[in-house]
Amino acid sequence: MIFEDLGMHYEVHGEGEPLILLNGIMMSALSWKDHVPKFKEGYQIITYDMRDQGQSARLEEGYTIDVHVEDLKKLLDYLKIDKVNLLGVSYGSQVALLFVLKYPERVNRMILPNATDYIDNYLQAVGEVWKIAARSYDGEKFFDLALPFIYSRPFYDTNLEWLLNRRKMFKETLTKPWFDGLYRLACSNADYDVRDKISKIDKEVLFISGEEDILTPHSHMMEMHEKIENSTLIKLNGTGHALFFEKLNDFMEIINDFL
Protein backbone atom coordinates (compact mmCIF):
# COMPACT_ATOMS: atom_id res chain seq x y z
CA MET A 1 0.00 0.00 0.00
CA ILE A 2 1.08 3.60 -0.58
CA PHE A 3 0.60 6.59 1.71
CA GLU A 4 0.30 8.98 -1.19
CA ASP A 5 1.03 12.22 0.70
CA LEU A 6 4.61 11.02 1.23
CA GLY A 7 4.89 8.45 -1.53
CA MET A 8 5.54 5.95 1.27
CA HIS A 9 5.20 2.18 0.85
CA TYR A 10 3.78 0.40 3.90
CA GLU A 11 2.26 -2.97 4.81
CA VAL A 12 -0.13 -4.01 7.59
CA HIS A 13 -0.21 -7.58 8.88
CA GLY A 14 -2.67 -9.00 11.42
CA GLU A 15 -4.81 -7.32 14.04
CA GLY A 16 -4.35 -6.12 17.59
CA GLU A 17 -1.97 -3.79 19.39
CA PRO A 18 0.13 -1.96 16.76
CA LEU A 19 3.85 -2.63 16.49
CA ILE A 20 5.73 -0.72 13.80
CA LEU A 21 9.11 -1.94 12.50
CA LEU A 22 11.76 0.66 11.67
CA ASN A 23 14.39 -0.43 9.15
CA GLY A 24 18.13 -0.36 9.37
CA ILE A 25 19.87 1.83 6.83
CA MET A 26 20.23 -0.86 4.12
CA MET A 27 16.87 -2.51 4.80
CA SER A 28 13.34 -2.27 3.43
CA ALA A 29 9.92 -3.63 4.37
CA LEU A 30 10.87 -6.79 2.47
CA SER A 31 13.68 -7.42 4.97
CA TRP A 32 11.05 -8.43 7.56
CA LYS A 33 9.27 -11.05 5.46
CA ASP A 34 10.58 -13.98 7.53
CA HIS A 35 9.98 -12.21 10.84
CA VAL A 36 6.38 -11.05 10.41
CA PRO A 37 4.81 -14.55 10.54
CA LYS A 38 6.69 -15.27 13.78
CA PHE A 39 5.25 -12.41 15.84
CA LYS A 40 2.86 -13.54 18.53
CA GLU A 41 -0.87 -13.20 17.94
CA GLY A 42 -2.62 -10.08 19.16
CA TYR A 43 -0.32 -7.64 17.42
CA GLN A 44 -0.82 -5.65 14.24
CA ILE A 45 2.57 -5.55 12.55
CA ILE A 46 3.30 -2.54 10.34
CA THR A 47 6.35 -2.44 8.09
CA TYR A 48 7.27 0.44 5.80
CA ASP A 49 10.04 1.85 3.68
CA MET A 50 11.37 5.12 4.95
CA ARG A 51 11.77 7.65 2.21
CA ASP A 52 14.94 6.88 0.25
CA GLN A 53 14.39 3.17 0.98
CA GLY A 54 12.75 0.35 -0.97
CA GLN A 55 9.56 1.32 -2.80
CA SER A 56 9.12 4.71 -1.14
CA ALA A 57 9.79 8.10 -2.73
CA ARG A 58 13.30 9.51 -2.96
CA LEU A 59 14.48 12.64 -1.21
CA GLU A 60 16.79 15.44 -2.24
CA GLU A 61 20.24 15.78 -0.68
CA GLY A 62 20.64 17.85 2.44
CA TYR A 63 18.06 16.34 4.82
CA THR A 64 18.70 15.04 8.32
CA ILE A 65 17.43 11.93 10.07
CA ASP A 66 14.72 14.04 11.74
CA VAL A 67 12.71 13.95 8.50
CA HIS A 68 11.84 10.32 9.27
CA VAL A 69 10.47 11.31 12.68
CA GLU A 70 7.91 13.59 11.08
CA ASP A 71 7.17 11.00 8.37
CA LEU A 72 6.46 8.41 11.06
CA LYS A 73 4.08 10.75 12.87
CA LYS A 74 2.25 11.47 9.61
CA LEU A 75 2.00 7.74 8.86
CA LEU A 76 0.56 7.01 12.32
CA ASP A 77 -1.93 9.86 11.91
CA TYR A 78 -2.91 8.52 8.49
CA LEU A 79 -3.43 5.02 9.94
CA LYS A 80 -5.36 6.54 12.89
CA ILE A 81 -2.98 5.01 15.44
CA ASP A 82 -2.80 7.03 18.64
CA LYS A 83 -0.15 4.95 20.43
CA VAL A 84 2.30 2.41 19.05
CA ASN A 85 5.05 0.00 20.04
CA LEU A 86 8.31 0.67 18.20
CA LEU A 87 10.91 -1.86 17.03
CA GLY A 88 13.86 -0.09 15.45
CA VAL A 89 17.05 -1.74 14.18
CA SER A 90 20.26 0.35 14.04
CA TYR A 91 19.32 3.44 11.95
CA GLY A 92 15.71 2.59 12.82
CA SER A 93 16.58 2.70 16.52
CA GLN A 94 17.89 6.23 16.04
CA VAL A 95 14.59 7.24 14.45
CA ALA A 96 12.73 5.53 17.30
CA LEU A 97 14.69 7.38 19.98
CA LEU A 98 14.23 10.73 18.28
CA PHE A 99 10.51 9.98 17.89
CA VAL A 100 9.91 9.04 21.55
CA LEU A 101 11.79 12.11 22.73
CA LYS A 102 9.64 14.38 20.57
CA TYR A 103 6.31 12.53 20.79
CA PRO A 104 6.39 10.48 24.03
CA GLU A 105 2.59 10.38 24.19
CA ARG A 106 2.51 8.35 20.96
CA VAL A 107 4.73 5.49 22.24
CA ASN A 108 3.89 2.51 24.40
CA ARG A 109 6.96 0.24 24.53
CA MET A 110 10.22 0.11 22.55
CA ILE A 111 12.45 -2.68 21.25
CA LEU A 112 15.88 -1.43 20.15
CA PRO A 113 18.30 -3.98 18.68
CA ASN A 114 21.78 -2.69 17.75
CA ALA A 115 21.04 0.79 19.02
CA THR A 116 23.22 3.83 19.59
CA ASP A 117 22.53 7.25 21.06
CA TYR A 118 25.23 9.07 19.07
CA ILE A 119 27.56 8.69 16.11
CA ASP A 120 31.08 8.21 17.40
CA ASN A 121 34.26 8.54 15.35
CA TYR A 122 34.28 4.84 14.45
CA LEU A 123 30.69 4.86 13.17
CA GLN A 124 31.46 8.05 11.27
CA ALA A 125 34.40 6.31 9.59
CA VAL A 126 32.29 3.29 8.67
CA GLY A 127 29.65 5.62 7.23
CA GLU A 128 32.32 7.17 5.01
CA VAL A 129 33.22 3.70 3.70
CA TRP A 130 29.54 3.03 2.93
CA LYS A 131 29.29 6.32 1.05
CA ILE A 132 32.39 5.51 -1.00
CA ALA A 133 30.96 2.06 -1.71
CA ALA A 134 27.61 3.54 -2.76
CA ARG A 135 29.29 5.94 -5.17
CA SER A 136 30.87 2.97 -6.97
CA TYR A 137 27.39 2.02 -8.29
CA ASP A 138 28.64 -1.57 -8.31
CA GLY A 139 26.78 -4.16 -6.22
CA GLU A 140 29.74 -6.50 -5.80
CA LYS A 141 32.12 -3.71 -4.75
CA PHE A 142 29.48 -2.37 -2.39
CA PHE A 143 29.08 -5.82 -0.83
CA ASP A 144 32.84 -6.28 -0.44
CA LEU A 145 33.30 -2.89 1.22
CA ALA A 146 30.14 -2.58 3.32
CA LEU A 147 28.94 -6.01 4.40
CA PRO A 148 31.90 -7.29 6.48
CA PHE A 149 30.99 -4.63 9.08
CA ILE A 150 27.46 -6.03 9.30
CA TYR A 151 27.79 -9.77 9.82
CA SER A 152 29.75 -11.56 12.53
CA ARG A 153 32.86 -13.65 11.98
CA PRO A 154 30.98 -16.89 12.91
CA PHE A 155 28.30 -16.08 10.33
CA TYR A 156 30.89 -15.45 7.62
CA ASP A 157 32.72 -18.67 8.50
CA THR A 158 29.58 -20.84 8.30
CA ASN A 159 27.54 -19.15 5.54
CA LEU A 160 30.06 -18.29 2.83
CA GLU A 161 28.04 -19.80 -0.03
CA TRP A 162 24.95 -17.83 1.00
CA LEU A 163 27.02 -14.66 1.26
CA LEU A 164 28.54 -15.15 -2.19
CA ASN A 165 25.05 -15.67 -3.65
CA ARG A 166 23.95 -12.47 -1.94
CA ARG A 167 26.97 -10.69 -3.43
CA LYS A 168 25.84 -11.80 -6.87
CA MET A 169 22.29 -10.67 -6.12
CA PHE A 170 23.60 -7.22 -5.15
CA LYS A 171 25.35 -7.00 -8.53
CA GLU A 172 22.18 -7.94 -10.41
CA THR A 173 19.53 -5.96 -8.52
CA LEU A 174 20.91 -2.81 -6.89
CA THR A 175 20.18 0.28 -8.97
CA LYS A 176 21.52 3.82 -9.14
CA PRO A 177 18.46 5.20 -7.27
CA TRP A 178 19.13 2.66 -4.50
CA PHE A 179 22.79 3.66 -4.22
CA ASP A 180 21.92 7.36 -4.26
CA GLY A 181 19.29 6.84 -1.56
CA LEU A 182 21.75 4.90 0.59
CA TYR A 183 24.30 7.69 0.17
CA ARG A 184 21.80 10.31 1.37
CA LEU A 185 20.71 8.14 4.30
CA ALA A 186 24.35 7.65 5.32
CA CYS A 187 24.82 11.44 5.30
CA SER A 188 21.67 12.16 7.29
CA ASN A 189 22.71 11.15 10.81
CA ALA A 190 26.16 12.75 11.09
CA ASP A 191 24.95 15.10 13.85
CA TYR A 192 22.70 12.57 15.61
CA ASP A 193 23.37 12.73 19.37
CA VAL A 194 20.80 12.09 22.12
CA ARG A 195 23.25 10.98 24.85
CA ASP A 196 22.11 13.70 27.24
CA LYS A 197 18.41 13.15 26.56
CA ILE A 198 17.58 9.46 26.72
CA SER A 199 17.52 9.38 30.52
CA LYS A 200 14.19 11.23 30.18
CA ILE A 201 12.58 8.22 28.50
CA ASP A 202 10.08 6.60 30.86
CA LYS A 203 8.87 3.86 28.53
CA GLU A 204 9.61 0.16 28.92
CA VAL A 205 12.61 -0.45 26.63
CA LEU A 206 14.21 -3.70 25.50
CA PHE A 207 17.76 -3.43 24.16
CA ILE A 208 19.22 -6.37 22.21
CA SER A 209 22.97 -6.41 21.52
CA GLY A 210 25.18 -8.70 19.46
CA GLU A 211 28.20 -10.20 21.16
CA GLU A 212 30.41 -9.50 18.12
CA ASP A 213 28.75 -6.30 16.91
CA ILE A 214 31.52 -3.79 16.18
CA LEU A 215 29.16 -0.99 15.07
CA THR A 216 26.93 -0.77 18.15
CA PRO A 217 28.90 -2.85 20.67
CA HIS A 218 27.44 -4.43 23.79
CA SER A 219 29.49 -2.14 26.05
CA HIS A 220 27.91 0.95 24.49
CA MET A 221 24.41 -0.48 24.72
CA MET A 222 25.08 -1.23 28.39
CA GLU A 223 25.71 2.48 28.88
CA MET A 224 22.37 3.27 27.22
CA HIS A 225 20.61 0.66 29.34
CA GLU A 226 22.01 2.24 32.50
CA LYS A 227 20.62 5.64 31.47
CA ILE A 228 17.02 4.44 30.98
CA GLU A 229 15.49 3.32 34.26
CA ASN A 230 12.81 1.00 32.88
CA SER A 231 15.00 -0.89 30.41
CA THR A 232 16.34 -4.39 29.88
CA LEU A 233 19.44 -5.44 27.91
CA ILE A 234 19.83 -8.91 26.39
CA LYS A 235 22.98 -10.03 24.57
CA LEU A 236 22.79 -12.54 21.70
CA ASN A 237 26.03 -14.51 21.66
CA GLY A 238 27.88 -15.23 18.42
CA THR A 239 26.12 -12.50 16.46
CA GLY A 240 27.11 -9.25 14.80
CA HIS A 241 25.21 -6.15 13.75
CA ALA A 242 22.80 -8.29 11.68
CA LEU A 243 21.70 -10.29 14.72
CA PHE A 244 18.03 -9.98 13.74
CA PHE A 245 18.90 -12.11 10.70
CA GLU A 246 21.84 -14.22 11.90
CA LYS A 247 19.79 -15.77 14.72
CA LEU A 248 16.26 -15.02 13.57
CA ASN A 249 14.51 -17.58 15.78
CA ASP A 250 16.36 -16.53 18.95
CA PHE A 251 15.69 -12.88 18.08
CA MET A 252 11.96 -13.52 17.69
CA GLU A 253 11.77 -15.56 20.90
CA ILE A 254 13.28 -12.65 22.87
CA ILE A 255 10.83 -10.18 21.31
CA ASN A 256 7.77 -12.37 21.82
CA ASP A 257 8.73 -12.92 25.47
CA PHE A 258 8.98 -9.14 25.89
CA LEU A 259 5.64 -8.52 24.19
Rank of each mutant, 00 (worst) to 15 (best):
residue 89 V to Y: 07
residue 141 K to R: 14
residue 64 T to L: 09
residue 81 I to W: 10
residue 41 E to I: 06
residue 85 N to E: 02
residue 60 E to P: 03
residue 119 I to D: 10
residue 39 F to Q: 06
residue 62 G to W: 12
residue 119 I to V: 15
residue 57 A to P: 03
residue 45 I to P: 00
residue 55 Q to S: 15
residue 106 R to G: 04
residue 144 D to P: 04
residue 71 D to M: 06
residue 69 V to C: 02
residue 77 D to V: 11
residue 141 K to W: 07
residue 88 G to W: 02
residue 59 L to K: 13
residue 116 T to K: 10
residue 139 G to P: 03
residue 131 K to W: 08
residue 79 L to Y: 13
residue 131 K to P: 03
residue 90 S to A: 05
residue 67 V to I: 15
residue 95 V to N: 00
residue 136 S to T: 15
residue 98 L to G: 01
residue 68 H to S: 05
residue 65 I to R: 05
residue 71 D to A: 09
residue 70 E to I: 07
residue 42 G to E: 11
residue 114 N to P: 01
residue 44 Q to T: 09
residue 59 L to E: 14
residue 47 T to Q: 07
residue 96 A to L: 02
residue 64 T to I: 08
residue 108 N to G: 04
residue 106 R to Y: 06
residue 55 Q to N: 15
residue 47 T to K: 02
residue 137 Y to M: 11
residue 126 V to R: 07
residue 63 Y to E: 08
residue 97 L to W: 03
residue 100 V to L: 03
residue 50 M to P: 07
residue 93 S to R: 01
residue 58 R to F: 14
residue 141 K to H: 06
residue 73 K to H: 07
residue 106 R to E: 04
residue 111 I to G: 01
residue 53 Q to H: 15
residue 50 M to F: 14
residue 45 I to L: 03
residue 63 Y to G: 07
residue 94 Q to P: 02
residue 106 R to H: 05
residue 143 F to A: 02
residue 43 Y to H: 15
residue 58 R to K: 15
residue 48 Y to H: 09
residue 98 L to V: 00
residue 107 V to F: 05
residue 61 E to V: 09
residue 40 K to E: 13
residue 69 V to F: 01
residue 70 E to G: 02
residue 76 L to N: 03
residue 96 A to F: 01
residue 124 Q to H: 15
residue 118 Y to F: 15
residue 43 Y to C: 08
residue 121 N to A: 14
residue 139 G to F: 13
residue 110 M to G: 01
residue 114 N to S: 11
residue 110 M to P: 00
residue 102 K to G: 02
residue 125 A to D: 14
residue 143 F to P: 09
residue 73 K to C: 06
residue 120 D to P: 05
residue 63 Y to L: 09
